[in-house]
Design a protein around this nucleic acid. Sequence first.
DNA 1: CTGAAAGCGCTTACAG
DNA 2: CTGAAAGCGCTTACAG
Lengths: 345, 345
Amino acid sequence: MAGIKDVAAEARVSVATVSRVLNDHPSVSAEARARVLAAVEALGYRPNAVARSLRTDQTHTLGLVISDVMNPYFTELARSVEEEARALGYSVIIGNADERPELQDHHVRNLLDRRIDGLLVSPTDGGSPLMLDAARSGTPMVFVDRWIPGVDVPVVRADGRGAIRDLMAHLHGLGHRRLAIIAGPAATTTGSERVEAFRAALAEYGIPLPEAYTGQGDFQAESGRRVTEGFLDLAEPPEVVFAADNLMALGALDAIRARGMRVPDDIALAAFDDIPWFVHTDPPITAIAQPTGELGRAAVRALVDRIEGRPPQSVTLPARLVVRHSCGEPPASSEPSPVTNRSHS
Amino acid sequence: MAGIKDVAAEARVSVATVSRVLNDHPSVSAEARARVLAAVEALGYRPNAVARSLRTDQTHTLGLVISDVMNPYFTELARSVEEEARALGYSVIIGNADERPELQDHHVRNLLDRRIDGLLVSPTDGGSPLMLDAARSGTPMVFVDRWIPGVDVPVVRADGRGAIRDLMAHLHGLGHRRLAIIAGPAATTTGSERVEAFRAALAEYGIPLPEAYTGQGDFQAESGRRVTEGFLDLAEPPEVVFAADNLMALGALDAIRARGMRVPDDIALAAFDDIPWFVHTDPPITAIAQPTGELGRAAVRALVDRIEGRPPQSVTLPARLVVRHSCGEPPASSEPSPVTNRSHS
DNA sequence: CTGAAAGCGCTTACAG
DNA sequence: CTGAAAGCGCTTACAG
C-alpha cells in the first residue's frame, strides 16, 4: 500500500508538502498541489488514519455504548447517531452491552483504549467504577436515553411522564382498575422512572400499585414472559399489563398467547417504545413513542459541542401516547402507516 | 493520561521492559514484572491502541458493512458477528449502507483507511470499483449473506431453495395458483436468487411467474407497500404475495391493511427471513428462517482464518420454512415461542 | 533478563 | 511557498 513517501517521491516534493495539500493547508503552490493530487490519484494513495490519529491525538470517532442492539429502539437510536455523526465528520463505533454490565465495561474500556474523541452511553446499570472514572476523567461524554445520577455529564432523553399520564387516562376511561407493570432494572433510570411515573399516574386516580403488580424485568423479552406468567398465576390477575419496553411486551404477548388468552378481551397490554410492528400485531398495540431519531441527533450534537469546545446542552423531549387496540376500545380514526415515514435524510 | 514512559519511570525500568510485560513476553524477571504491574495499577495505565496499531500494523479490528441495520435480520447478523469476533479477540466496526451503494463505498473507504484487519461485507449492489479493488487488493475479505460473483472471496450464506420449494408445496396444497413476488434489487445476489428459486419452484407445478406478478422492491418496507399496491390494482390480483425480506413484508401488510383487506382470506402473505414478531402479527406470518447466528459466526471464523494465515472456507447453510397462518390453513401444532430461545453465549 | 535505539506513517512548528 | 526534523506512543530486533 502506497505511503506518503511514495506520493512525495512521485510528485517530487517533500512529505510535508504532500501532507499540506492533503490537509488543505493554504500555503502550497498551485503547481505543487496539482502534482501531489496527480500522484495521489496515480498511486491510489489513502492516508493512514491510524498514523494520523497518533500524531494529531484525534480519531474523529465517537463511541456509542448501548444497552441492547437487538432492541429496535436502540437500533434506531444507533442509526440516527451514526447519521448525524457522519454529517458532522465523525465515525461511530458501536458497543452492544446486551444489558450486561461487564460487557458494557468491556466496550467502554475498548473504546477508551482506541482513543475515541467522545463517548455516548446509555448505561445498563447505576455506574461501574470504570464508567464513573471515564465520566470524571477528561473524555467528553454524553448520556442518552438512560443516565447516571450524580455525574456531571449532559443527558439527552425523553420524558415519558406526560404520555404515561395520558395512557392512564385512556385505561381508566376503559374501566380498567387493576393495573400491573413489567419494570426494567431498578438500577437504570428508565427502569425506575417508568415505574414511578406509572405509580404517580395511578395515584391521581386513587389506584394503588401493589407489590404483586410490579414485576421485575430486565428489558429483555424473556423477562417479560416470565413476569407475565407470574401475573397470570395470581389469584386476582391484573386487567392491564404495561411493559416498560417493547421487548418485554413481546415476551408478555408470548406468555398470554401460550395460555390461549386474548388481548384485550382477557387482558390488556400496553408498551413503552413504539415500533412499526405494533401496527400489525394481533391486536395492534397501544404504545408510548419516543422521538428516537431526534434523541440520537441531539445527543451527537451535544457530544460534538463538548469535543469541539462549545458548551454542551442537556435535552429532554416529550414522548407521546399512540392509542391502538390492545387495551380495549378501538381508536376513533385509523392512523397512517408509520413505515412510510422513514426518512433517509 | 499516563503513558508507557510514566509507567517505566514509576517501575524504574525501561519502556522496553514495560512493553514486554504488557505483551507477556517471557524474558522478564519476576521482580521487574511485579514492579511494572504495580506501576500500571497505580497509574491506571492503559496502552494506547492507536500507537500499538501503527507499530504492529494490526488493529485487531474487523469491519462489517451491512446493507441495513434496521432490518432485524442484519441486526442479528451484526450481533452474532460481534460476539464471535470478541471471542476471537477482535473488535468490530459496523458500517450501515442503508441499501445505498454510495454509503456502502463511504464505509468501505473509511474502514480501509482505519486499517482494519479484515472486512465482512454484505454487498448492496453488484460491486463498485472500490469494492472490487478492495477485494482484489490485500485486505482479507469475506462476503456474508449477499456476494459478488466473479470475485475470489469466500462466501458465507444461506441457501433458500429448499425452503422456497417447501413453501411452494405448502401454497399449492392450499390451492393457490396465482403467486406474486416482491423481489429485492436484481443487482444483489439475494435479490435475484430468491426470484429465480421462486420461479423454479413454480415451474415444478407448471405455474408461470408473469411479469405483472414480479414486483421490483429494494428490501425496504416502503417498496413492499408500493409493489403490493400495484398487485392489488391488477385486474386479476395474485392470491399470494411472497416478500423477499421481512421489511417488504411489513410494507405489504401496511398496503393490504390500508385497503381494508384481510390476510389470508383476501390475500395470502409469506416472507423470506423470520423474526420474533411474525408470531404475533395478525395473522402469524409464514416465513423462511435463516440460521442467522450461525452465518455470522461462520463468517467471522472464515475471515479470521484468512487474517491469521489459515485457508478460509466458504459456507452454505440451509434455510427452512416455518409455516404459520398467513397463507391459509393453520399449522397442525402450535410452535414454541422463538423468544425464549435467545442465547447469550 | 535488560536497555538504547530505530521506526511505524503521519503532522507541524521552525527556519529559510 | 518549501523542506528537514522532531515527535505522537508504542514494539522489537540488536547488543550486551
